[in-house]
Computed example of a mutant assay.
Amino acid sequence: MSVDWQSGLLFPDAFTSHLTVAASDIDAFSHVNNAVYLKWMNDCAMEHSASVGLPAEACVDLDRGMAVRETRLVYQRPARLGDGVIIANWVTFNDGRLRANRYFQVARASDHQTLLLGASKYVCIALSTGKPARMPDVFAKAYQVEPGLQRRLVADAGLRAELII
């Protein structure tokens, strides 16, 4: 799903998920628990994969999946019960062989304030063995970096330095 650049998201052409913070997301400190953000990011990545023709069932049929190797999160503001939240993600790297990266931004819908920035590095694995394996061509095509984002990442050293992974 495309997002209006004015929405407060870092980059255009994000795939986004939208949700409302539920009571089950809240911890003893009356804000969204840190582990919930990670679940939201994973769910958004899975929804994005399905939207480009790679739902979990297709990955199982191909005996391939993208496994998280490393994730970094920077929490900036809390989300609270009832807040509308936008989870955005962009594929920022794909070598077409084994590795891909996604960048995430979680923002409050009402004021577009960034709540969290995150990044995950993935490696393609054979689901049957759990070992690294070359990604199928369909993965290389489905997880391409948007040309505009690619140009911006290549041209802007300052932006690359700000990204957390």
Rank of each mutant, 00 (worst) to 15 (best):
C124K: 01
V52G: 14
C44T: 15
Y75F: 14
M66V: 08
V36F: 04
A140Q: 01
L38W: 00
G84T: 06
E47L: 10
M41S: 01
G65C: 01
A126Y: 05
L62R: 11
A56I: 15
L149S: 09
A109F: 09
L115K: 00
V74R: 13
V85R: 01
V123A: 10
V145C: 10
A142Q: 10
R102P: 12
G118R: 06
C59G: 14
V91W: 01
R102E: 05
A107E: 00
P132F: 08
W40E: 00
R69E: 03
L117I: 12
G53W: 12
S110W: 08
S128F: 02
N101E: 15
S51N: 12
P55H: 14
F93N: 05
Y75A: 11
D83P: 05
N101L: 07
A35N: 05
Y103L: 12
K131G: 04
R72G: 09
A140M: 07
F104T: 10
S128V: 00
L115Q: 00
A88H: 07
D61A: 12
E47R: 14
A45K: 04
S110R: 13
A109Q: 14
L153W: 03
Q113E: 07
D111Y: 14
P147K: 13
L38T: 09
G130W: 05
C44G: 02
Q105E: 13
H48S: 02
S128K: 06
M135G: 03
A140F: 06
A142F: 10
P55C: 13
Q150F: 06
